[in-house]
């Protein structure tokens, strides 16, 4: 079984992002970029499937600027077999990203696509679901545990009410949640091996995907600074405080 995993280049989670003065987005120049943490979890899960003999090939896919090769190299150093970069300098909406993945799915015919549940830059959290719909295959989102059993997968999902376990037929789309696994540290000798692994490139035109923006970002602004909270000793004190602030 081939497993396709998504690898998005995003601002590193340790960076304190700054909103551009004109409100058109956040500043990314000279800022450290990394693999989206949820995508790292997706890669790790695919690699574990491979070492457990459940998958034969792990293909890392990134859609973004040429520099996204850096993140693909990281995925290859973690252990992915090969990578595909769909090169574009445009900011893509989730639906366009899902269409790109659909085009790649048609080419590669994977048994499973694992994507991070969301990217930490735009927090859209829509691509996996949209891909499943375009592909017309089952989806198991917010996965915290995945067991492949022949032609199906048993997936434990983190939902508001607790944990839900579902069984889906493969091929399918799974989106990785935080507790699915802890991604490995890249071993230094593997970094050398990653150099020799291939990265194929495509353009949106080659894949027949048009950019048709349906959303228009109006403004980006920094969240308002919050006052620090404090601890209360008892429930009655809490109620009194809330009343005092006119909240109840």
């Amino acid at each position: 079984m081939k497993v396709l995993v998504g690898v998005k280049r995003v601002v590193d989670y340790n960076v304190r992002v700054q909103v551009k003065p004109d409100g058109s987005g956040v500043a990314t120049e000279g800022v450290k970029m990394s693999v989206n943490p949820f995508d790292e979890i997706a890669i790790e899960e695919a690699l574990r499937m491979k070492s457990a003999g459940k998958a034969d090939e792990v293909i890392a896919v990134s859609i973004g600027p040429q520099a996204a090769q850096e993140q693909l190299r990281t995925a290859l150093a973690m252990g992915a077999d090969r990578a595909i970069l769909v090169e574009t300098d445009q900011t893509l909406e989730p639906l366009t990203v899902a269409r790109v993945f659909k085009a790649l799915v048609d080419q590669e015919q994977p048994g499973l696509v694992i994507l991070g549940k969301q990217a930490i830059d735009d927090d859209a959290g829509q691509t996996p679901q949209m891909l499943a719909a375009l592909w017309d295959r089952p989806q198991a989102t917010f996965a915290s545990k995945v067991e492949i059993e022949g032609e199906s997968a048993k997936v434990t999902r983190e939902v508001d009410l607790g944990l839900e376990t579902i069984e889906i037929d493969l091929p399918a789309v799974i989106s990785a949640d935080l507790r699915l696994n802890e991604p490995r540290y890249v071993k230094l000798p593997d970094i050398m091996k990653a150099k020799k692994k291939p990265i194929g490139t495509h353009t949106l035109e080659e894949l027949g995907v048009e950019i048709a923006p349906a959303l228009k970002p109006v403004k980006t602004e920094a969240p308002q600074a919050r006052q620090g909270g404090h601890k209360v000793e008892s429930v009655s004190e809490l109620v009194a405080e809330l009343k005092n602030k006119g909240l109840i």
Partner: peptide, 27 residues
């Protein structure tokens, strides 16, 4: 690392190679 040594020696080139960048991330 190896990529660097294949180039002309740059005495004061502070650009990290891909390998160095990944090594740093991991470390």
């Amino acid at each position: 690392m190896s990529e660097k040594s294949a180039q002309e020696p740059q005495l004061f080139d502070l650009t990290l190679t891909d390998e160095q960048r990944m090594t740093r991330e991991s470390m």
